[in-house]
Nucleic acid binder design. Structure first.
Lengths: 350, 350
DNA sequence: CTCCAATTGTGAATCGATTCAGCGTTGGTG
DNA sequence: CACCAACGCTGAATCGATTCACAATTGGAG
């Protein structure tokens, strides 16, 4: 059924080696032969078997990417950036989403390792880095995405979440809010705790400001709705005057819940700011203020680091403890109607 | 560097065949041996090489999925459904997005075929089905997703887009609108033309109703913004009193553009309805009325058909023109504030 | 004590593309 | 005219897991 190089070779009256050369190093073959082989390929409908190719090569031409949630536009943007960079080197991105679940994360890592991917980009769920260290030790480079490597064991591309959290809450302080609620969770996720940490710093730097933490089970619109509903149900006097949500999905959920039945006005009663600045944030019921991260650039850079690392590994071969690279981008405050009523509701053009 | 079955076999003092048996048919091996082999695997850090496995097996354990746009939540929902069903059979989804671009679509198909995927799920860009037919002819089953197969050459899972379009415009008619604008494009995409066709039917069934078509270059928020801006710029008397957008992304773009500077009020001046009912639709500036499609179910069902077909092919082996299956779901109207003011769960915008 | 059957385990062949040492030709140089 | 380099091509070896016909061992029945 399957057409192999052997059959193509027979048809074109050349050896299999020549067919392979036509496929991979056409300049090493005379034009006439190239044409003859191509004709045979066309006539037979030959399609290269990637498994055989990979087996021989020892590594696949793809890169694994494990994200926390594919439904979060932030991560699809990261994926797009990664894909773009990978394509430049003829590589492919394999996308896995852990759904904030350790088992799923683990099975994607297993899968990717069995596939002998060129490397793994991952937004790790927790601080269970030993797993990743072993993976890396076995020869699969790992780059942490949207998460700073604590030490030099991993390369990483991240945005400073502490600064981001600080930016958000400082903004809330500047518009006169003092009773802040931080909505986010689970606390096992580093991005959440870092943003919270930044928020704390801003709170401490602001006289008279207090903060409560409303923990959520995940970083989704649904979880945000639940948190928002809980806040709405309280007596008006007991409500915060500002909410900082750990990401835009949560923020949008909070927003929906707060505005339900017109109970709470945003930003009049409660100012709201999210994180990530996803496209939809600008289109929310009330356009969402947010902290922008260069998502596509993060993905692009991560693949870049990975390929650099993989390239070196090929050369060195000496599995030495090379210094890993860490890239950190700075987050940026984007002000819209959910914190400042008369702020332009349209997103800035790229 | 890489640990192979051979080394595991040596370490456990058994043959490679036995190691393979432990991995794939543990019941055929005595418990003591199984344990010994597992120990060797652990000690050596052995990881199966999937390429070798696939080469032998002839097919990979993954399914290719090509969608029009990963950034559209509708498609990520489809992907999630597909992933769930695939996981039930220990299979994986490879996600490719064509970005409404024929070249990208083509290169994903090439890639998937070289990978010898179990089958391909695709939301085809155009009506260029010969390409897919050849693919299928060479032994890779194809299931059309969110697109009804014109004839019986392909299995397909779709939602009736003509009915959907009709539902949308009939709703606009019922709330008293008569001057409709259909926003969507490119017209090469079947979903667009089908929804437009449905819209036409509703228009023709409604005395005094007229419709104009505002063609867009893609189905994105950005394209929607452009279309919306064009409408906003017109003299008030020249504007439509309702807009039906070919998907929610477009609709949200239109919404943003219309409301800019408070020029046009939605739904007072212009009622707006989208398509897909993505999660964000409910959270828009004005909650978006839309046509709901069972996205995850579509993905789930598509994989189901695919696996059924692939299974049969294994048995038959007789490449005969078997009858393909076609599944069609019915769309559903969801009314929110963008068409009916009091359906809104919040005060209307400034 | 034989004999047969069931149970375990063996190892060479296989999948298909790539690689590489090496062979035969050609054409240019001294 | 001899010599050599460059070129075009060959074909066997290779990657690593799986498979399968067959060998070795064990146990139970007769």
């Amino acid at each position: 059924m399957a057409v192999s190089v052997r059959e193509v070779a027979a048809r074109a009256a050349v050896s299999v080696g020549t067919v392979s050369n036509v496929l991979n190093r056409p300049d090493k073959v005379s034009p006439a032969t190239v044409e003859r082989v191509h004709a045979a390929i066309r006539e037979l409908g030959f399609v290269r078997n990637d498994a055989a190719r990979q087996l021989r090569a020892g590594r696949s031409r793809s890169i694994g990417l494990v994200v926390l949630d594919v439904r979060n536009p932030f991560f699809t943007d990261v994926a797009r950036g990664a894909e773009d960079r990978a394509a430049e080197d003829g590589m492919t991105i394999l996308l896995g989403n852990s759904d904030e679940n350790a088992d799923r994360e683990g099975s994607y890592l297993d899968l990717f390792e069995e596939q002998r991917v060129h490397g793994v980009l991952i937004t790790p769920l927790t601080d269970d880095l030993p797993r990743l260290e072993r993976l890396q030790g076995r020869g699969t480079p790992v780059v942490l995405v949207d998460r700073e490597a604590a030490d030099r064991r991993f390369s990483s591309v991240a945005v400073d979440d502490v600064v981001g959290g600080e930016l958000a809450v400082r903004h809330l302080a500047e518009i006169g809010r003092r009773r802040i609620a931080f909505v986010g969770g689970p606390m096992a996720i580093r991005q959440v705790t870092d943003r919270l940490e930044g928020a704390r710093r801003a709170v401490e730097a602001t006289p008279g400001m207090t903060m409560e933490v409303v923990e959520t089970e995940s970083l989704t619109v649904l979880a945000g709705r639940a948190a928002g509903a809980a806040i709405r149900e309280r007596a008006a006097s007991d409500r915060p005057d500002a909410v900082f949500a750990a990401n835009d999905l949560l923020a949008m959920g909070v927003l929906q819940a707060l505005m339900m039945q017109g109970t709470v006005l945003v930003p009049d009663d409660i100012a709201l700011i999210g994180y990530d600045d996803i496209d939809f944030a600008a289109a929310a019921v009330v356009p969402l203020s947010s902290i922008r991260q260069p998502a596509a650039l993060i993905g692009y850079t991560a693949v870049d680091l990975l390929l650099k690392e993989a390239g070196e590994a090929d050369g060195d071969e000496g599995e030495q403890e090379r210094e890993r690279e860490r890239v950190i981008f700075q987050p940026e405050l984007v002000v819209r109607g959910s914190t400042v009523p008369d702020a332009a509701s349209h997103p800035s053009a790229p």
